[in-house]
Write a protein that binds this DNA or RNA. Structure first.
Lengths: 415, 415
DNA sequence: CCATTTTTTCCGAGGCTTGGAAAAAGTCTC
DNA sequence: GAGACTTTTTCCAAGCCTCGGAAAAAATGG
């Protein structure tokens, strides 16, 4: 094989590319017509129509009844087309400290079922962990069968596992996670065999930007997602691609050094952003300690701490300010390297944004050239689970679209 | 036009892509045969042969006499093909404090002439600056006409201006440069008119990775170029693309904050890497000052300072160590965000690498997770001018290749 | 000088897109 | 209510590029 720039065969690549363009357009707008496809993709009406026909015949698309009332328009009305939910099913699973959660969605992206299990997985072996994930997935399959008229026995087509912690860059498993004791746990292989579905394992934070892949207000936009909570993590979407490192699985924002020889971090280093901005860092700072708590700080404890800070508790206020300062300097450093970016904030930090934001913006001002980025838009997204599910689902669907576009294969079942 | 994912027309895109693959292959290996093109690109021999024929006819390629002695091989020998130097000419100009330099090269990448002018451009208006650049380019054209049998009167096809300082992201001109007093100087437009050639203006540091675009040992490799001298700058090549910011023109490595509220930097902020690692920072640190010198520290002064440090002068040694520490922490922060990367080091720092390296590696160890990247390969490239010329030339030629591949246009002159 | 080997050229076939014409399916007007 | 008008969809010939195989070309070996 040639390195990097390859040759293109007409038959395969062009067809795949154009089909993908059509599917991508549908992901964005939901419902279209052949004409609209032509306009959005730049394809000729003939080509757009032909491609839609093929996709319809292969079961990826379906004709839907238009319910619009634009009755004032003349001419032949376009037949409305949409993605056919039944063409595939994907699952997004999330593995965090103390719980495993998941959501199953159909090919159109509509959620079919969600489930949650509180389990202490820290001591579990790789096999037990895979079994737990498989059970959750099977529970989701069962739930999604009834009620919504979706096919029952069917298997999943794609599974994404989002993990708190560092994952292998080949998407095969976990290198290390705060939720686990063991290192290097292989997930994709055994889980894939168990569910007979393709499985990808990714870091939850680096995956998050995928949630906005088809959102109209984020199209073509570079931005970062920032998780501040149990740990501190970042996801980056740059020029239409979600950043995935080759060594580390993610932008390890939480472990960018803030102050040389500074506060002790879980990773063993000193002065990381996380050592100032994570839940445990804020907690220990407010309580005057400099040790790392043995257990995760509960959410309500953080809410109480925030409440105290708002009511004038000085150590608490100072702790949040120090956290914001570390985050701000971290962002300033990122902005200096990459570019000022809009930020989507989630995690417990999102619920204390009023306490953090002034210090964040001050930190950016002090650490970026000309204070560039100090006015970066900040979007708050409190529901982290929903964000991760959206992201995992989008990732899985995008991968499926690519496969479907490449192979002219028929969908899993007949129309 | 559609946003992001567009449709592809068979005629245009496939042809352009495959032609570019052929040209790219030639850039890497220099001389090939049709057969070798087929193997390297994955194209069928028929297609590869057809494309080579077209490129030959359009004057981009030429048949060359093979001088190899592989006389033991049987069968019809392949006709050797190479890029035809006369197909185009490009110039790489460099604008720095106190001097303007340039190199002109032919389409095959062979250098035809170099020139250098020492001028204090700090007070110059935009018009005068453009005039100076144009004069240098015309001098280069004149020099390249004689001697090498290249066409005389011809114009340049592409000009790249590499600038110390911040440039506009649309490649049109300079936002701010330490070499100039004025802000926002438009270059591309007027210079393009004067030379009737396409002109691009880029930051010198962000351009540098282009120098390695076709080097076999760098193919497909992610790496960073690091300039340590008058200022501190970085260029990044990630997954086959040279990083170009949308706001800032480059990875502003020199202005990534090292220590909050630290040493004063030229940019007005405090604690930037540059405020510890640049020539002026090392100089003032060694001399016990904390002011920014009004003028650039001469190269030989830095060499003397390095010599003093090597002979045991404690303040000098400590200054270089502090510089290495700041660079190391900066690299550690970058590695934590992106990935550990091989580094190509140039500038005056490259000549003092023995004084810097231990502190650099210690800094990386202290600031990256698990000390990852502390053993990153370090390549020293002392000749900064050559690096920038190589980079500008490669950038220009790559752009030309793209244009030639896209349009079936004949080359500038007949074979 | 002829067999063998390797590279290059030539030619028909296949696939996908394009542009225009024809058909289809509505609204509007008289 | 019928015909005119408008807009969307389908159909068909043409064009481009690639591919695969056959034929030609150019050198070595015996």
């Amino acid at each position: 094989m040639a390195l990097s720039s390859l040759a293109k065969t007409d038959a395969d690549m062009v067809r795949a590319h154009n089909r993908l363009a059509v599917l991508d357009h549908l992901r964005r707008v939901g419902v279209t017509t052949r004409k609209a496809v032509s306009e959005a993709t730049g394809l000729s009406v003939s080509a757009a129509s032909a491609i839609c026909g093929t996709l319809l015949r292969s079961g990826l698309l379906q004709e839907v009844e238009e319910e619009d009332d634009r009755s004032t328009r003349r001419g032949r009305p376009g037949k409305s087309l949409a993605l056919r939910g039944g063409a595939a099913r994907v699952a997004a699973l999330k593995l965090a400290v103390g719980e495993i959660t998941g959501r199953i969605s159909d090919y159109s992206g509509a959620p079919l079922a969600e489930a949650r299990r509180e389990v202490d997985i820290s001591g579990r072996s790789g096999e037990r962990l895979v079994a737990l994930l498989a059970e959750l997935a099977e529970e989701l399959i069962g739930q999604s069968a009834d009620g919504r008229g979706h096919p029952s026995g069917g298997r999943l087509d794609k599974v994404v596992v989002a993990v708190q912690g560092k994952t292998h860059s080949d998407l095969s498993g976990i290198v290390w996670s705060p939720a686990l004791k063991h290192w290097n746990i292989e997930i994709a292989g055994p889980l894939s065999e168990r569910l007979s579905a393709d499985v990808s394992v990714l870091n939850d934070c680096s995956l998050m930007p995928e949630a906005f892949r088809w959102r109209p207000d984020f199209i073509g936009l570079d931005f970062a997602t920032l998780f501040v909570g149990f740990g501190v993590g970042m996801g980056l979407r740059i020029s239409g691609a979600t950043f995935q490192g080759k060594h580390s699985s993610a932008v390890e924002f939480g472990h960018i050094n803030h102050i040389p020889h500074g506060a002790l971090c879980r990773c063993g280093n000193r002065g990381c952003v996380e050592a100032y901005a994570s839940d445990y860092a804020i907690w220990r700072s407010a309580t005057g300690s400099d040790e790392i708590p043995a257990h995760r700080i509960p959410d309500d404890a953080m809410l109480q701490l925030a409440a105290a800070a708002r009511q004038g508790d000085e150590p608490a206020r100072a702790a949040f300010e120090a956290a914001g300062n570390a985050i701000g300097y971290g962002l300033g450093r990122v902005f200096t390297m990459i570019d000022p970016l809009p930020i989507v904030l989630t995690g417990s930090g999102a619920r204390a944004i009023d306490l953090l934001e002034p210090a964040i913006r001050k930190g950016i001002t002090e650490s970026s050239v000309d204070g560039l980025g100090a006015d970066a838009p900040l979007v708050i997204q409190e529901d982290t689970d929903a964000l991760v599910f959206d992201a995992g689902t989008a990732y899985a669907l995008a991968a499926l679209d690519g496969e479907f576009a490449r192979s002219a294969a028929e969908a899993t079942e007949a129309a």
